[in-house]
């Protein structure tokens, strides 16, 4: 229950952090909020020889809106700052609504969004929310950077598109167009636990009230967060009635691949998806009105 020894580096700028990661390669891990990595180290499930601690890289603790109204969140921006930001709550209520389900306030004090996404636990809420919001991730390495769409980032349980020398440096979330409504719902055994099933819904109505865009993303629904593309496509053009939501739920259940756990069998997880999807869609549709 104590971490194995490691060498600790606490650089103060991004270039130094990237250089350290490049020189130590696989032996090194970036340390952000530490709310997933440190428990894993305490259990000795993770035994990195080197920690490149980003907590002193103040340039990474950023949260701002770009000219197009999109939100940019730096690697060291903590959940606590995001969930308390009035502008975030106004423009991206889905993010704040889902953050309330992420562990507990004490964890959100130090935990970071970028750290959570890099950890890529398929049961975690935030990866699904990033899919629903069509986020893109700025991956930086020494001498280069690239933008990767959230849907191309999550490759499997705890597996991402990050190369050995790359850092998830910034999260880009585009502005939601007018007429949008969002909702996040989950069922967990206890408050703050990982969800047995969670649903993020994003809907947009056109001037006639019909659905012009829809996205549904689920957590604890497979080896990665799952985008239910067919169910979402089927909603476009509908009047967003209860029947449309039931039809979407029936499709979602065929698109997910829940893995089951000690708390819930895959069959029960599918049942939960069937219950939560119509509820989340109804809420999002009401908010899009």
């Amino acid at each position: 229950m104590k971490p194995a020894p490691f060498a600790w580096h606490a650089p103060e700028d991004v270039a130094e952090a990237l250089a350290l990661k490049a020189s130590h390669g696989e032996a090194a891990r970036f340390l952000a909020g530490g709310q997933s990595l440190v428990p894993a180290m305490n259990f000795r499930v993770a035994q990195p020889a080197v920690l490149v601690d980003l907590n002193r890289v103040s340039a990474l603790d950023s949260l701002n809106f770009d000219a197009a109204g999109g939100l940019r969140i730096g690697a060291m921006c903590r959940y606590r700052r995001i969930e308390r930001d009035a502008e975030v709550a106004r423009h991206l209520p889905l993010l704040v609504e889902a953050l309330a389900e992420v562990a507990h306030p004490q964890i959100r004090t130090r935990g970071t969004l970028a750290g959570n996404l890099s950890h890529a636990d398929p049961a975690s809420e935030m990866p699904a929310v990033m899919l629903a919001l069509e986020a893109r991730f700025l991956l930086r390495r020494q001498g280069g950077e690239r933008l990767v769409a959230a849907r191309d980032f999550f490759l499997g349980p705890l597996a991402t598109a990050l190369a050995e020398d790359e850092m998830l440096a910034e999260i880009h979330i585009p502005a939601l167009p007018p007429g949008s409504g969002t909702a996040f719902l989950e069922v967990a055994r206890r408050r703050g636990d990982y969800a047995m099933m969670g649903v993020a819904a994003v809907l947009r109505r056109g001037p006639d009230g019909r659905c012009v865009a829809a996205r549904l993303a689920l957590c604890s629904a497979g080896p990665t967060p799952i985008l239910a593309d067919r169910a979402a496509a089927n909603l476009v053009g509908t009047r967003l009635t209860g029947e449309d939501f039931a039809a979407a739920a029936a499709l979602v259940v065929t698109e997910i691949d829940p893995m089951g756990s000690v708390q819930a069998s895959p069959a029960y997880q599918r049942h939960l998806a069937g219950v939560l999807v119509p509820r989340a869609l109804a809420l999002a549709a009401e908010r899009a009105a």
Binding site: V38, P39, N55, R110
Partner: peptide
């Protein structure tokens, strides 16, 4: 628990509650 679940080790870090078992002293 030493993995951030039980809350027994909660301290205030710059005024905000945090798990002291999930941070290194050097930080």
């Amino acid at each position: 628990c030493e993995h951030g679940v039980c809350g027994a080790c909660t301290i205030l870090w710059d005024g905000a509650p945090a798990r002291s078992c999930l941070a290194f002293a050097v930080q």
